[in-house]
Design a binder for these strands. Structure first.
Lengths: 207, 207
DNA sequence: ATATAGTTTAACCATTTGGTTAATTGCACA
DNA sequence: TGTGCAATTAACCAAATGGTTAAACTATAT
């Protein structure tokens, strides 16, 4: 029966993708080894090529998947009525994603830096366009909910505050937090508040 | 005469280091190829090993050099009398360094992520300890120049605002700035001011 | 001039790595 | 039960890569 085949295929395919995600996230494209992915998936290396043809194709799949999960959250946030809650949701989308996938920021930054042009293509392919966040912010300024400022600067600041601590986690842990996991956890638990208080102070109208 | 030999040695050594810096900065440890470094230096590949023994030793040299140049600027900034100027100088040290070495943030983040423990060792070896920035900020709070807040959050915020835009440059250029070099240059020219205005708003006492 | 010591190179080596192939297994179906 | 097709594997391959070596070159000191 065809249905069972399809199901088996999907199972193996998923096993491979899970292993590939782990390895690529941790080691990046250059550092990852097909053999390690196969080992982690518990299958023969030839299967990777049987299902995904090449390392690059497999990598792309993993890369695209990571964004497909994340971006809708940001888009969703912008439909929220209250301006404050909307921006809070964007911040939350970023931070919760990275709590769940700690390697994602480094993974993206490395790939971004490795092949920027291919990155741009993939973004367009998936339909990610951060400019809509910018226009969203500009709308909120027009409507008088936010102070009128340079929206490019504002969005860069917000994203910087959300993403960078995760990207620099090993540094912060070792040089600022005495390698103490608890301090990191507390820091991250507060992070949404911390970022929002900066945004409030700098960009929202004083009540 | 020994002097001439030493000079020649130094010349070749520097040629190698310059080439190695370029390649490692752009491709990272995993992506860099010894042959490419040799080609860029215009010498035989064996020379790399003659002078630096191994890829890792060469990489370490490049890595350490990058910090040795940068960190004293930050330390120097903290000796400045006026609190505002002191913090401005720290921000300036970061941003000017990255204007000069655009690949440095990605280079550091990648290495940080690749071998965090070795990174920590190198930092201690060079004598870099960002905690002194934290205690410096705390002193300014005690003295009433800054609002009393969590110094860890403050330093992370400041560094995030300074570093992240450079690390994410390829993304920002392509998705927010229409690949327009001029927009990027303007953005970076304003960056010191932008960051300082956030710091002023959030952390300095209102005049 | 020649010995000596450091410098540089071409050729080579062992290992790793992404990818292929041909044979084997397992399973639906007739 | 046997046929056919997809899934899976072991063995293999060519290219790339970090590293080595032995010979050649250069310049200096005697």
């Amino acid at each position: 029966m065809d249905g069972l085949n399809k199901q088996n295929e999907n199972v193996t395919e998923q096993v491979i993708l899970n292993a590939a995600r782990e390895v690529f996230m941790e080691k990046g494209m250059d550092g990852a080894r097909m053999q390690e992915i196969a080992d982690k998936a518990g299958i023969n290396k030839a299967m990777l090529h049987y299902y995904f043809r090449s390392k690059e194709k497999l990598f792309n799949k993993v890369f695209i998947e990571a964004f497909k999960e994340f971006w809708p959250q940001v888009e969703g946030a912008m439909t929220i009525e209250t301006p404050y809650k909307a921006i809070e949701s964007i911040v939350e989308a970023y931070i919760d994603t990275f709590i769940d996938k700690p390697f994602l920021p480094n993974f993206i930054l490395a790939e971004l830096h490795r092949t920027p042009d291919r990155f741009e293509l993939l973004m367009k392919e998936i339909g990610i366009n951060p400019k809509i966040i910018m226009t969203f912010l500009e709308k909120l300024m027009e409507e008088g909910h936010l102070k009128k400022t340079n929206s490019l600067n504002m969005i860069v600041n917000v994203i910087s505050l959300c993403v960078f601590p995760f990207a620099a986690r090993p540094l912060m842990m070792r040089l600022l937090m005495d390698n103490n996991e608890q301090i990191w956890d507390d820091f991250i638990q507060q992070r949404k508040e911390t970022v929002m208080s900066v945004i409030k102070e700098c960009y929202f109208m004083k009540a």
